[in-house]
Design a binder for these strands. Structure first.
Lengths: 317, 317
DNA sequence: GAGAGATAGTTGTATCATACAACTATATGG
DNA sequence: CCATATAGTTGTATGATACAACTATCTCTC
């Protein structure tokens, strides 16, 4: 990065901080109301038709759904918002502003118009245009950059090691399996030690690990261990997708990447162990050619489970 | 406001909201740290030398001083900031970053540089310049606008009625005198009813009220009642400055405005009642020519007080 | 048609940032 | 010397936020 680019970035950061302070985002209420910043944003998004459900607001405002639920409940209690059950999907509640809510929205708009109007009043038309282009341009750039980082369609799969991969894969397994079948410390310890041992062999050409980040932390992974079974048999391990990426198709894409690796390496077979009942995963395995080879019932880490081994015969080009 | 100006303001507002969301200001931690937005801003301001005291941070970040005190305490506890007592003013604590704090600052800078760098990477140099000019221009416009609204040197004194004036003047009196001498409801009731009655006569040319707003609400006032005493004697009433403007010289300026009004009206005398002990106020009165005319000891609204009447002889041009 | 898995939204709970108020220690000016 | 102001701290209350677990509903597969 040359000196000019570094200076540009510092100027942007400095101006951003000043903007945020001037816009009052470390204060508890906003825009001349007694509403929190989130509530003001929510009201504006509902008023302007960009959000009609709590889910929309959660996405737009980047708040956890329980926070949105609570701020909506308050707006409903104050008589500013009304919710009605969707006719097609009874889970969904449609949000609209009441007369009172429209008045509040109008007051917020007026207050903000005054504030912004006073701020730009001394400026020439040219400078105002530059200002608007700058703000919109930067907002758009940030949004696009974030979208690119997170979009499931984007090639967000990274191969190999990166800091926190080991810890996160262990954490995701512990979290998932403790919820599923009550596995605890012995399970987590084993996952950690086996994965750590595997990571020491990651430089071997027959071994690979792939991961995906979401919201700045690793949220999905898969690995191929080409050494721990006999001969030219690959072992598919540590395949997991956490909630943030569940349902995005990332599991399928991770599996495809691992299988492509196996085929390229020329393994005669790929094996994996899973548990009976994980039907979503099983469907994925079967779609790429895995078949159930054996089942073992037994007690593992304090839980009665049926382990299943699937095998996929290698396909040479 | 014509249609183009209204559209400009709406585009600015919309872009501001998007920016704020992208910059993560409704989230609990910021910039890839486990620090709150305020703590991150504080660290940056200390690191870059713009803040060396808690008071500096309170001003820059627009936080209440107790919030600054607590966030600094946490940064000190984590070993990121160190405070030393000022040699000249033992009240003041000078703040510097530790080695650890410098490392944290560097990590924040690096994370933000990556983030901003990625956001602007696809943009041309021209667009980056526009973006920077826009951000800096708007931040500066907002800062100037706020400064103009609040600067004590600026003609921030407004004359006459505005919504909330009556309630605020009553509130300020109740707050101040309950703290000073324990006056309660009877006092507040009397202030309210007398001021309300006076406000009904505000259109008379011999009556006037002046007030100053701070942070969007009225924080100082003074009034001249040219009718409630005999003949051509003016009554200076409801002179009060609350904590937010105390020490800024506004009291002096309000008094000057009121006295100028009295002289312009040609009153033979101006009278005022105050309490013994209010030495700051007394100094102001004496500076513009008031002299102690009488004192009455007595019990008022449950408190033993000594009332004092000051008189200023009118000065004809 | 039943069951598994996913989704929309709610509630329990904990944490933490913020402000108001009142306090202590120190500085300043009359 | 005393009154007032200021820098900073602490007691206390409030409310926003997230994690987790729950209920109700929807969708898809067998």
């Amino acid at each position: 990065m040359d000196a000019d680019a570094a200076t540009d970035i510092e100027r942007i950061r400095s101006a951003s901080r000043r903007l945020v302070r001037e816009l009052g985002f470390m204060e508890q209420t906003l825009a001349g109301t007694n509403l929190s910043p989130s509530a003001v944003h929510a009201l504006i998004e509902i008023a302007e038709g960009r959000a009609t459900t709590a889910r929309d607001l959660s996405d737009l405002l980047r708040l956890e759904k329980s926070s949105v639920s609570r701020l909506l409940k308050k707006l409903i209690e104050t008589g500013d918002v009304v919710e009605t059950q969707d006719k097609d999907d009874f889970r969904v509640k449609r949000l609209t502003l009441t007369t009172n809510g429209c008045a509040l929205f109008a007051a917020i708009a007026k207050s903000a118009q005054t504030r912004v109007g006073q701020a730009i009043a001394p400026l020439s038309e040219d400078i105002i245009c530059t200002l608007i282009a700058g703000l919109e341009g930067y907002a758009e750039a940030l949004e696009r950059s974030r979208s690119d980082t997170m979009a499931p369609d984007q090639p967000g799969i990274a191969e190999g090691y990166r800091p926190t991969v080991l810890g996160r894969v262990v954490e995701m397994h512990a979290h998932y399996y403790s919820g599923l079948v009550g596995f605890g410390l012995p399970f987590e310890t084993k996952v950690a030690s086996e994965l750590a041992e595997f990571m020491t062999r990651l430089d071997a050409p027959t071994n690979g690990i792939w991961h995906v980040a979401s919201g700045g932390r690793i949220s999905a992974s898969i690995a191929i261990d080409g050494q721990d079974l006999d001969g030219d048999v690959a072992h598919l391990r540590w395949f997991i997708v956490d909630d943030t990426l569940r349902g995005t198709g990332i599991g399928k894409r991770l599996l495809d990447a691992a299988i492509a690796f196996c085929d390229a390496q020329g393994f005669s077979e790929t094996h994996l162990w899973t548990f009976q009942g994980l039907e979503t995963a099983r469907a994925l395995y079967e779609r790429v050619g895995f078949q159930l080879a054996e089942e073992n019932a037994g007690r593992q880490w304090g839980a009665e489970v049926i382990e299943q081994r699937f095998v996929r015969v290698g396909q040479r080009d």
